[in-house]
């Protein structure tokens, strides 16, 4: 009996170790669906802007393969929609400021990157290297970028919880501009 069971036990153990090792190597990439808030934060009050223009709708393909309708991106918090790419030197500088802003708003603002990278691998690398706290969209074919009339990254849009564009800056907004626009639509308690 023992001689018969030993190979099976070994095989099961080997399979278990292999699965563990693979999951460790191929864990979900940064910037995936799990970075999107699932509920409105309790530490903030949202006040959608009255004069905001509707943000163009789209289906977002995230770098982990999940697809999300744009309305789900901003239904719980205002969004800093940041058009960027791994090769964009100006974008990297502004990303640091955006990360600081996100930290200051303590979960009351979601940062969503729209990557213009040529490949999913590059977009996934951007998600990791940028240390962005929110989801990263792989804008394959540049469709979302075109819908927002962005000709070249960086560009930044603030979208409120009603799906309205509060402000948008081609070339990217300064930290002061972004904070001022956010303060119109969200107040952290």
């Amino acid at each position: 009996m023992r001689a018969t069971h030993t190979p099976r036990i070994l095989a099961l153990a080997t399979a278990g170790l292999l699965a563990t090792a693979l999951s460790g190597c191929t864990g979900a990439p940064d910037g995936g669906l799990d970075t999107l808030p699932t509920a409105a934060p309790t530490n903030a009050t949202m006040t959608p802007a009255e004069d905001a223009v509707p943000a163009p709708a789209f289906d977002a393909l995230l770098v982990d393969g999940a697809t999300v309708p744009s309305a789900d991106l901003w239904k719980n918090t205002p969004v800093i929609l940041y058009f960027t790419a791994s090769w964009c030197t100006q974008c990297a500088e502004q990303q640091d400021e955006i990360n600081t802003i996100a930290k200051d708003y303590d979960g009351a603002v979601t940062v969503v990157l729209v990557s213009s990278d040529d490949s999913l691998t590059d977009a996934q690398k951007l998600a990791t290297d940028s240390a962005t706290p929110g989801p990263v969209i792989f804008d394959t074919g540049g469709e979302i970028t075109r819908r927002y009339a962005v000709t070249e990254p960086p560009a930044t849009a603030i979208v409120d919880t009603n799906g309205g564009i509060v402000k948008m800056w081609l070339g990217g907004g300064s930290a002061g501009q972004i904070r001022a626009a956010l303060d119109e639509v969200v107040a952290v308690k």
Binding site: S86, C88, T89, Q90, D118, G142, R146, E152, P153, G171
Partner: peptide, 25 residues
């Protein structure tokens, strides 16, 4: 020759429809 609006002297890449011309290409 994309005639995009930029700050003179800033880093840049090709704007639409030349987005394929950028650092790393």
């Amino acid at each position: 020759r994309d005639a995009a609006l930029r700050e003179i002297g800033a880093d840049c890449a090709g704007a639409t429809p030349y987005n394929y011309v950028h650092a790393g290409t």
